[in-house]
C-alpha cells in the first residue's frame, strides 16, 4: 500500500486549487488523482468566456482558467499527478482504492480532499413523461459532444430549464447551425445569470418562455416533438394551454447535484455550510462543487484553497 500525506481526488478547478494551496501551506507529499486523461475537469468543455473575472480580474474561457492552475501544478513536482485514475472506494481509515488502466492501487493518506465535482439532474429526476427515444441529452453532455468531440447532437432543439449551462448551450447550438426552438423555464425568471440571457438568448432572438413546463416527450426512435403548457405561479398547469413543438432534441438543464457517493459509501457526512469543506471524519475534506454547487468557479477556487490550507493544518497537527 502506498502512503501519502495528502491525497486530492479530482483535478478540476477545485482539486487543483486545493492541492496547490496545500503545497503552499507546507505539505510536500501530495498525490492528485484525476479520472480523465487531462487536468481541468469540466472547464475544458466550457469554451465560452466568463471565468476568472473575480479571481484573476480578467475575462477568461474555461480552458484558459484551468490552464493557469495546470501551469502552476506542472511547476510543482512534489505534487504527484496520476491521470486516468478512478477512485472506487474510500474508507474510514483514509484508505483510497483506485483503478487505472492495468493497475489497481491502494493509498493510505493522512488527509484526503475530495473534489469530485457534480453531475447534472436528468430527465428522470425531473419526471418528464413520454417516450424514451434518442435525442434527449443533459446540457453538459451536449456541450461535451459539441466542444470536445466536434459532433452535433441535434438540429432542432428544445431546452428545458434556463440555468447558465442551458443558456450557454442555446447560443452554442445556434452558432453550430442548429435551431433552438424554445428555452422553457417553469419559473417567472431565469435561473441563470442575466448576462447570459443577454448574450446567449437576446443576441440571437431565441424564444425564452417563462412560466412554461414541458409535459411530454414524443417519438419512438428519435425525439419527434414535445408538448408544453403554461403554468400559474404555483407551477400548476393552466387548463387548455397545451401546445406542441416539433424538434429532434431535448436538452435538460435543470440543475446540478454534488457527487458524493464515495463519501456516502464510507458513511462520512458533509457538515453544514458554516463548517466550510469539513466532514464528520477529521482529516477528510470536501471542496468545490462536490461540497456545494457554486455559481462561479472563482468562488469555488477560493473555498477550495481554504480546503488545502485546512488539510495542511490537519497534517501538521498529526505530526506535532
Amino acid at each position: 500500500m502506498i502512503k501519502r500525506d495528502l491525497v486530492v481526488v479530482g483535478a478540476g478547478p477545485a482539486g487543483m486549487a486545493a492541492a496547490i494551496s496545500a503545497y503552499k501551506a507546507g505539505v510536500r507529499d501530495i498525490l492528485l488523482l484525476e479520472r480523465e486523461q487531462f487536468l481541468g475537469g469540466v472547464l475544458n468543455q466550457c469554451i465560452h468566456t466568463g471565468f476568472g473575472i473575480e479571481y484573476f480580474k480578467e475575462v477568461l474561457t474555461g480552458p484558459e482558467y484551468a490552464g493557469r492552475f495546470i501551469k502552476e501544478l506542472k511547476n510543482l513536482p512534489e505534487i504527484n499527478l496520476s491521470l486516468r485514475s478512478f477512485v472506487i472506494k474510500l474508507n474510514c481509515d483514509k484508505v483510497l482504492t483506485f483503478l487505472k488502466p492495468g493497475q489497481m492501487e491502494q493509498v493510505k493518506a493522512k488527509a484526503i480532499i475530495m473534489a469530485t465535482g457534480c453531475r447534472e439532474k436528468t430527465r428522470e429526476m425531473v419526471h418528464i413523461a413520454g417516450s424514451r427515444p434518442s435525442g434527449i441529452f443533459s446540457a453538459g453532455l451536449a456541450q461535451k459532444l459539441i466542444n470536445i468531440e466536434g459532433v452535433l447532437p441535434g438540429r432542432e432543439v428544445v431546452i428545458v430549464g434556463s440555468g447558465d449551462i442551458g443558456l450557454i448551450m442555446a447560443r452554442r447550438f445556434t452558432l453550430e447551425g442548429a435551431q433552438v426552438k424554445a428555452i422553457i423555464e417553469i419559473k417567472d425568471r431565469t435561473s441563470g445569470l442575466l448576462r447570459n440571457v443577454i448574450q446567449c438568448v437576446k443576441d440571437y432572438d431565441l424564444p425564452l418562455l417563462f412560466n412554461h413546463k414541458i409535459k411530454r416527450i414524443y417519438g419512438n426512435q428519435r425525439v419527434k416533438k414535445v408538448s408544453l403548457a403554461k403554468v400559474d405561479k404555483n407551477y400548476n398547469e393552466i387548463k387548455d394551454s397545451e401546445f406542441f413543438i416539433d424538434c429532434d432534441t431535448v436538452l435538460i438543464s435543470t440543475g446540478l447535484i454534488p457527487e458524493n457517493e464515495l463519501i456516502e459509501m464510507a458513511d462520512i457526512k458533509i457538515k453544514s455550510e458554516d463548517d466550510l469543506n469539513k466532514t464528520s471524519l477529521p482529516g477528510v475534506f470536501v471542496c468545490g462543487n462536490s461540497y456545494k454547487v457554486y455559481d462561479l468557479v472563482d468562488s469555488a477556487t477560493k473555498d477550495s484553497q481554504e480546503a488545502g490550507t485546512m488539510a495542511a493544518e490537519y497534517i501538521r497537527s498529526l505530526n506535532a
Binding site: I47, H48, T49, T61, P63, I146, N147, I148, E149, G150, L175
Partner: peptide, 17 residues
C-alpha cells in the same frame, strides 16, 4: 469563442477565441 478542427493532434477540437 468557438472550436477549430485539429488534424492528427492530441485533441480533435481546439478551443479558440
Amino acid at each position: 469563442t468557438s472550436t477549430v478542427l485539429a488534424e492528427k493532434l492530441s485533441l480533435k477540437m481546439v478551443p479558440i477565441r
